[in-house]
Design a protein around this nucleic acid. Structure first.
Length: 585
DNA sequence: GCCGTTTTCGGCCCGACTGTTTTCAGTCG
C-alpha cells in the first residue's frame, strides 16, 4: 500500500475511535472506520488524488475527501487534532483492554480522570473503581486480568500457528458424538496475514456436549465465556513464541442453519454489514440463523452460503475477498474474479537446500515436490554475495550436475515426471547489482533476486536499487519484495508504484512469498501491482521439506489480492513459463 | 458522514454473553 494510504488510514481510524469514545453519532464513527479500511486497501496513491477521484473510494464522500486533501497539504487533519484535545490518547489505548469499550473508558475518564492504562491499573489497586456505577467486583477482576493480557500475551499470531490450532480443535470437536459438521471460519478462513482469535463453527442438535468438550481440551488455560451455544477459551498454541496462547470461539448451530452461520462467522464484519444492508433493502433479515422475511419472520434460506448470497442477488463471494472493499459491488454485478487455487500451482520457483541455509538435501526437497504432484520445481540456493552462505561457483555447478542427474532418474525411460529447474536466489546489493557475471547467470533456468541487507536506505535510493534489479535481463522474480518480517521488521521504503511499473515493463515477476512470517508481497499491494500489469510467482522460499506446504498461505494471500491464474506465472504450463523467463530476450 | 432496485432525506446489521441493572447496557464479533 502506498505510504500515504497507510498514514491516512491510520488517521481516519484514530478519528473513528475517538468519535466512538466521545459519543455522539455512532454512524459517523462507523463510516470513518469504513473509509479507513477502504483507503488502506485502495490501489492508487491517495497522496496524488484530487477530491473527485477520492470520492470514488467506498466510504469517502465530500467531508472525508476534504480531510484527505488537507492531509496532502498540511500532513495532518485539523478536526482530528481538535478531537485529540478532547479525548486523551491514553483513553483510546484503554479501549484495547478486553471488556473495556468506549463507553466505560469515557466513564472512567470523566468520573475518575483516568487517562492511561497505567492510571487505570493504579486506580484498581487503590479500590477507586468500587463506587463507580456499573463497575462491580467482577469488572475489577476482568479489567485487571485484561491489562495483564494486553501487556504481555494478547498478540496476533501467524497464519500457520492459528491454522494448526484450528485443525487440532476441528478434529477434536468433530469427534464428539452428535457433532454433524465442524469447520473454522473467521479471519483464518479469509487468510488474513495474522490471526487475533480462531473461530470454530459446529453443527449439532444438542450443543451441550460440544460446549463441554472444548473447555476440556488439553492446553485450555482459561474459559472466557461459557453459554448454551457459544464458548470462548484461551488455549496454548504449542508454539513457544506465543506463550499466552490464543482465544478460540466455538459456536454451535443446528445443521439447517449451516450456510447462514458459516457466512456470518467468516466475516469480515464490514462485509457482513454491507450484505445485511442489502437484505434490509429487500425487506429481508439476515442473521446467523438464516435469511428471513423481515415482516413475517418466515425462513427463506439458510442451508448453504451459496443459497444465501444467491437469494440476495449476489454471486458467492470467496472468503479472502470479504472485506467490503469492492467485492460486494462486484458480486452484485456478477463480476468477481475467478481466483487462483492451490491446485492451480504447477511448481515452486523459490526453494533452498542444505547446500546453503536449508535443512533438506536436494533429493529430499525434490522427493517431496514430486509427491505434491508438481510439474516443475526450481531449486534456488543463495548466491556468493550473501557471504555467510559460503556459496561458490564450483558448488553451484556441482549442484546443477546433481540436479540434472536426479531429473534423468525421475524420468526413467519415459517422459519426465517433473521438470527440475536450476535457479538461484541472488542478493540485490545496495546499488542494485547482483551476484555473478551475466554469462554465469545465463546458465540458470530461473533467477530470483532479493534484498537481504541495507533495509534502511532512503526511498529514492531504495527505488533505484529495485529498478536496477528489474532491468537486469537475467532477473526473473523479485523475492519477498517488501523484505518485511511480520511483527519483526518493517517493510523497506520503496516507491511501489515505480516498482510495479518497472516490473510490468521489463517482464519481471513479483514474488508472493508464502512463508507465514513474510507473506510478501503483502496482499494490500497485490491488487495495485496487478492493475499495473505485474505478474506474480507464488513461492514458499522453503528451507525444509515441510515448508513446501506453506504454498496455501501464499495462494490465500494472492486471493486476497484478487489474482487469477493468468496473473501467476507458476500456474502456467512449462512452455509458457519458459517464455516468460526469457524476458523477451 | 455516506448513500440510493422504494430514498438527495432518513436511514444506517444482528445476536450471544456478562455483570449488576430488578429490566438492561455494554462489549464483542
Amino acid at each position: 500500500m502506498p505510504q500515504a494510504n497507510e498514514m491516512v488510514a491510520a488517521l481516519l481510524q484514530e478519528y473513528a475511535d475517538l468519535l466512538q469514545i466521545a459519543g455522539g453519532d455512532q454512524f459517523r464513527a462507523r463510516n470513518y472506520e469504513r473509509a479507513a479500511k477502504s483507503v488502506a486497501g485502495y490501489s492508487g496513491d491517495v497522496a496524488l488524488l484530487d477530491a473527485a477521484t477520492l470520492r470514488q473510494i467506498p466510504g469517502v464522500g465530500t467531508s472525508i475527501a476534504t480531510k484527505i486533501i488537507q492531509f496532502q497539504q498540511t500532513g495532518t487533519i485539523a478536526a482530528l487534532e481538535d478531537l485529540r484535545a478532547t479525548v486523551p490518547g491514553g483513553v483510546r489505548e484503554m479501549t484495547r483492554i478486553p471488556a473495556l469499550g468506549p463507553k466505560r473508558a469515557l466513564q472512567l475518564y470523566r468520573e475518575l480522570g483516568i487517562s492511561s492504562v497505567a492510571e487505570l491499573s493504579a486506580a484498581i489497586d487503590e479500590g477507586r473503581l468500587r463506587d463507580l456505577r456499573g463497575f462491580g467486583p467482577k469488572s475489577e477482576d476482568k479489567l485487571k486480568h485484561g491489562i495483564e493480557l494486553a501487556r504481555s500475551l494478547h498478540q496476533r499470531v501467524p497464519l500457520n500457528v492459528a491454522s494448526d490450532v484450528a485443525e487440532r480443535i476441528v478434529a477434536a470437536i468433530s469427534a464428539v458424538p452428535g457433532c454433524e459438521r465442524c469447520e473454522h471460519a473467521g479471519s483464518l478462513r479469509r487468510f488474513r496475514e495474522t490471526i487475533g482469535d480462531v473461530d470454530i463453527l459446529a453443527a449439532a442438535s444438542d450443543s451441550g456436549p460440544l460446549m463441554q468438550a472444548i473447555i476440556e481440551l488439553p492446553g485450555v488455560t482459561e474459559v472466557i465465556a461459557h453459554g448454551d451455544t457459544k464458548t470462548s477459551v484461551r488455549i496454548s498454541t504449542g508454539h513457544p513464541a506465543q506463550g499466552g496462547g490464543i482465544q478460540v470461539d466455538l459456536r454451535v448451530v443446528p445443521l439447517e442453519c449451516w450456510g447462514a452461520a458459516l457466512q456470518y462467522f467468516t466475516g469480515s464484519q464490514a462485509h457482513n454489514v454491507a450484505i445485511r444492508e442489502i437484505a434490509v433493502r429487500k425487506k429481508l433479515k439476515l442473521s446467523e440463523y438464516g435469511l428471513f422475511q423481515a415482516e413475517t419472520g418466515d425462513l427463506i434460506v439458510s442451508g448453504t452460503e451459496e443459497a444465501v448470497y444467491r437469494r440476495l442477488g449476489l454471486e458467492w463471494v470467496p472468503p479472502p475477498l470479504r472485506e467490503n472493499t469492492g467485492e460486494v459491488q462486484a458480486a452484485l454485478r456478477g463480476d468477481l474474479p475467478v481466483l487462483v487455487q492451490v491446485g492451480d500451482v504447477r511448481g515452486d520457483l523459490h526453494t533452498h537446500t542444505n547446500l546453503t541455509d536449508g535443512v533438506g538435501t536436494l533429493g529430499e526437497m525434490v522427493g517431496v515436490a514430486t509427491a505434491r504432484g508438481y510439474e516443475y520445481f526450481a531449486v534456488t540456493d543463495h548466491a556468493p554475495n550473501l557471504f555467510m552462505q559460503r556459496m561458490t561457483l564450483e558448488k553451484m555447478l556441482s549442484q546443477r550436475d546433481q540436479l540434472r542427474g536426479l531429473e534423468a532418474r525421475l524420468a526413467g525411460d519415459g517422459d519426465p515426471v517433473m521438470t527440475l529447474l536450476h535457479g538461484t536466489e541472488l542478493n540485490i546489493g545496495a546499488d542494485g547489482t547482483v551476484d555473478w557475471p551475466a554469462e554465469i547467470l545465463a546458465g540458470f533456468d530461473v533467477c530470483v533476486a532479493s534484498v537481504h541487507s541495507h533495509f534502511d536506505q532512503p526511498r529514492a535510493e531504495m527505488t533505484r536499487r529495485f529498478l536496477r534489479a528489474c532491468e537486469n535481463p537475467e532477473v526473473n522474480i523479485i523475492g519477498h519484495p517488501s523484505a518485511r518480517r511480520i511483527g519483526k521488521r518493517p517493510p523497506v521504503d520503496v516507491d511501489f508504484a515505480e516498482l510495479f511499473r518497472a516490473c510490468a515493463a521489463t517482464g519481471t515477476a513479483l514474488e508472493i512469498n508464502a512463508s507465514p512470517g513474510r507473506l510478501d508481497l503483502p496482499s494490500d499491494h497485490i491488487k495495485a501491482a496487478r492493475d499495473a500489469g505485474v505478474k506474480f510467482s507464488i513461492d514458499t522460499d522453503a528451507h525444509a521439506t515441510g515448508h513446501l506446504d506453506f504454498v496455501r498461505y501464499g495462494v490465500g494471500t494472492a486471493q486476497r489480492g484478487w489474482l487469477s491464474t493468468d496473473d501467476v506465472i507458476n500456474t502456467w504450463p512449462l512452455d509458457r513459463l519458459r517464455e516468460f523467463l526469457r524476458k523477451g530476450g
